[in-house]
Amino acid sequence: MLRVNNLSKTFTIHNLGAKEISGFRPVSFEVATGKTLALSGPSGTGKSSIIKCLYRTYLATSGSIEYTMANGETVNLVKLPDTEMVRLRQREIGYVTQFLRVLPRVSATEIVAGPLIGTGVSYDDAIQRATVLLRRLRIPDELLDAYPVTFSGGEQQRINIARAIIWKPRLLLLDEPTASLDKGSIEIVIELLNELRQQGTTMVMIFHDPDVMHALSDSIYLTQTIQEEECCECNR
């Protein structure tokens, strides 16, 4: 479903005299439909940057990302027109990090239900499903209708994860979404993500905790340290 060929990223910082900073060494890997791949490697090897290239938050400098869509057509995510990429993000590709982009004055259930609304699911139904999911993640009932701006880091992360999985994306990109969760919560997240796997979601993930990584991944791709001369202060 996903074939990454010689993908590389170099940042050109124009304000520093067109200084070039390497994001990661060229990577190539494949993930079959329904399989999960973990990116693993020392800090600074560009794991997050690779994931951001897959989601097109970063523009890759060279190489290709061949993605086979639900309709069977294969496209190159590096070159896909913006509006097509937006469509894929709405219909097929999800992305979750450790940071919740909190929207002011939107309740927890509404944030989680958001991706479902507009996909043919009714508002009430979407809220209902969000409620069930948040309860599974042990979000206390009194927080369901509250605004997550004031929530703890761990609560916000659970809201974030719920929002990412509620719509069952075909391809889910995960960048350390459990970074500040306690053991109990992590176990629930693993359970939920494994359910998603069983239902056929393909995943590319970064998890620092080896136990979590092994519990969720079919295979592991090792990212490598950028060579001395390419090395940089950037630690994305």
Binding site: T57, Y58, L59
Partner: peptide
């Protein structure tokens, strides 16, 4: 021109 998150995180 680009996706808004790309413009903000990886401006060209």
């Amino acid at each position: 021109a680009g996706l808004t998150d790309q413009i903000l995180e990886d401006p060209q």
